[in-house]
Design a protein around this nucleic acid. Structure first.
Lengths: 233, 233
DNA sequence: GGATTCTTTTTTGTATACAATTTTGAATGT
DNA sequence: ACATTCAAAATTGTATACAAAAAAGAATCC
């Protein structure tokens, strides 16, 4: 029986599945059936179904009536869409944060940066270390949105980040732009702490745009390689 | 038995409830219980529960475990949050539309404007006529987002618009800014049709900001009146 | 051998039964 | 009259049974 994180099995199942999807334990395209999950988690189908409904609304799984659910697969296009929105929302949320950040908030932001630096300094980094830095880097954006004070914006951004993450996860490790990312994060945080509203927004937008282009280049190359393979055969 | 819009009762219930909430037939703050809805729609509790899960995720109803659901009530703050986000997203979506609009799209936009003018020209307008103009005005924003071509943006904007609408509904009728709204809509559409990207975005942002301030003024006045009443008693 | 049709199996959709918790209301005591 | 406590009712959470549809596979036909 799965542990009851909150009060209801439904929430426990939801959180559990969401985490597994977002972190790539259940890969995009994988089929998820009620019976399998129910058996694995030792609960009846009812809470599973309710969790599925929520996850579908989050866009993490996709289903058609009577044909079950599949973990949503992102194509290049959805990717571009998500990052284009992020450019707008992350930029705005950085602006808000630059206005609203308290001293505590600033401390928290700097702590997150320090944590990243710490992980970056580890001599022989395992994949797990990299995963962790990635996770914290994404969390930074969530925290900035939270500091901004617009809770609806925070929720929306978290939703998009979840959606992106479960696909990007494996990809980003190949991107090898750790240093650039850290520097950009640092500059954004500095701008926020200095209360430089416009600069913070500008840097955040440029940062998202940079990530987007990097990932798209990678995906494009990979796609080219695929077509190259199939044509050569 | 409720009509099966799609294939499943769940979807039918979801759409039915959503419409009733968004159009204010079920007012904010109203309690919605599974049994009542199930009895009213002549279905079992199961599809109701699934619809509730989706609606909660949409932010249209709010629930705590074992305490049932309530149609979400917006306060001044949530309102400001929603419109601040809309300013950003509507602006962006207008920019996208100005880039992507085909001739067909432009025709469609102009048709919507014409429809509004037509409703405005009715001699003795009933409340129903006003409702309809309001609805079409909101739909215009949805269509612009759709034309922009970013389907994720379109979905998010529709979500926010739904949330706003079910509260604004009754309020907007008092605002009496029909003419201003129509003029602004017209200018935005013109900019989009002319392909003037920056202008379209700028106008859209100003438009949302204007609506926001108007509604907030109204709500503020009303809130002042409330405190005035209670203090006077 | 390949396509087709029918049957079997799997999987989701819906209804209902039961358990657990919260809320409500009444009865009791001060 | 008011607060407290306990019991009854209402409501949600979970499990399970059954129905309907889709997918998979086997047998048949060409």
């Amino acid at each position: 029986m799965v542990k009851q994180t909150k009060n209801t099995l439904r929430d426990a199942v939801y959180n559990s599945l969401k985490k597994m999807i977002v972190t790539g334990q259940i890969p995009p395209g994988a089929r998820v059936t009620e019976n399998d999950i129910a058996a694995k988690l030792n609960v009846s189908r009812t809470p599973i179904r309710e969790a599925f409904n929520r996850l579908e609304r989050d866009g993490l799984i996709t289903g058609r009536p009577r044909q079950g659910y599949v973990v949503t697969e992102f194509d290049l296009n959805m990717f571009r869409e998500a990052f284009d929105i992020r450019e707008v929302l992350d930029g705005y949320s950085a602006e808000l944060a630059a206005v609203a950040a308290t001293e505590e908030d600033k401390l928290r932001l700097r702590e997150i940066l320090a944590e990243c630096e710490g992980l970056a300094a580890i001599p022989n980094r395992t994949v797990n270390d990299q995963f962790q830095e990635l996770q914290i880097g994404i969390d930074l954006h969530r925290v900035i949105a939270q500091i901004g004070g617009n809770s609806m914006l925070h929720g929306m951004l978290c939703g998009i980040l979840d959606k992106c993450q479960h696909y990007v996860w494996a990809e980003l490790l190949w991107l090898d732009e750790w240093k650039v990312t850290r520097e950009e994060h640092t500059k954004i945080v500095e701008a926020i702490c200095a209360g430089e509203v416009e600069l913070a927004g500008k840097l955040a937008r440029a940062h998202v745009r940079g990530s987007r282009d990097g990932i798209l280049r990678l995906l494009q190359m990979r796609s080219d390689y695929q077509t190259f393979l199939t044509k050569a055969s």
